[in-house]
Design a protein around this nucleic acid. Structure first.
Lengths: 133, 133
DNA sequence: TTCAATAATAAGAATTATTATTGATTTGAT
DNA sequence: ATCAAATCAATAATAATTCTTATTATTGAA
């Protein structure tokens, strides 16, 4: 017969990450799937995340408040991180052309693979909550 | 007369961070100063780093391999992080004008305070060590 | 079906980085 | 010298992540 148990949790982990734009943490994924898979363990989530990362199916988009944030959208794009609530938003707009990687590599004598642009500040919600920050 | 409350250790911690361009970790600072201050504790390093950060005298420039990296140069500039050895280099060149912060804020309805641009890849040294990576 | 090899798993221990607590000591204005 | 606030080291606590281990599931072959 076809495998059942094999892939379901793993698929669900990947699916959960890809289906959200919240740039979730491992803990978020775990909490999300616990209802559907009561015997899921956090270690399994971490293990699969590591595998998906090295397979290039998801990527890490930084650490916010000590927790790694994941993104199922592996196409390069910029982010905004709210220093209040930690929300991470996509900023899909071309700030820097991709050629800049090559340029930088040449100028500084490095092998540049990619770049990450992160804006920081307060999101709309936190702006109202803590005005004048 | 205003109190200074700057002990020698405290001065040394700030000085150590500002005097290097390696973007050190707390542990690095601790190891660095242990010879001069044998009774220094890692907790003191962390405590002072936190104070210097909130006073704006140093800043955090990201987390590499799970460790927070510090920079005594608070003027905005881009960085390069080597995925091999974790080295962090300054790239002092204007990639994005500062006005982009305001623009992004307007366009996306956010209060943007700053942005961080990080290039990733292999440094010269690691390039030779692991060719073709 | 039975078997062995392989891969996925949960649970929890271990590790690592960081923060908080505590109680003693030092500092500096008076 | 006095005294309150600042500073300190040591230690305990916390939080995120990784590692270990024993168990179970899957597969392909005999």
């Amino acid at each position: 017969m076809k495998r059942q148990n094999f892939s379901r949790k793993r698929e669900a982990i990947l699916e959960a990450i890809c289906a959200t734009d919240t740039h979730p943490t491992a803990e978020w994924v775990y909490q999300r799937l616990k209802a559907e898979f009561p015997d899921l363990s956090l270690g399994t989530v971490y293990r699969n995340i590591a595998q998906f990362k090295s397979a290039g199916r998801i990527r890490s988009v930084g650490v916010v408040k000590g927790q790694e944030r994941l993104d199922g959208d592996t196409a390069p794009h910029a982010h905004f991180v709210c220093s209040g609530c930690g929300a991470m938003l996509d900023l899909k707009r071309d700030f820097l052309p991709r050629e800049v990687n090559e340029e930088v590599g040449k100028i500084f004598g490095l092998e540049v693979e990619n770049h990450e642009l992160v804006f920081r500040g307060k999101c709309n919600h936190c702006m109202r909550k803590h005005p004048g920050a």
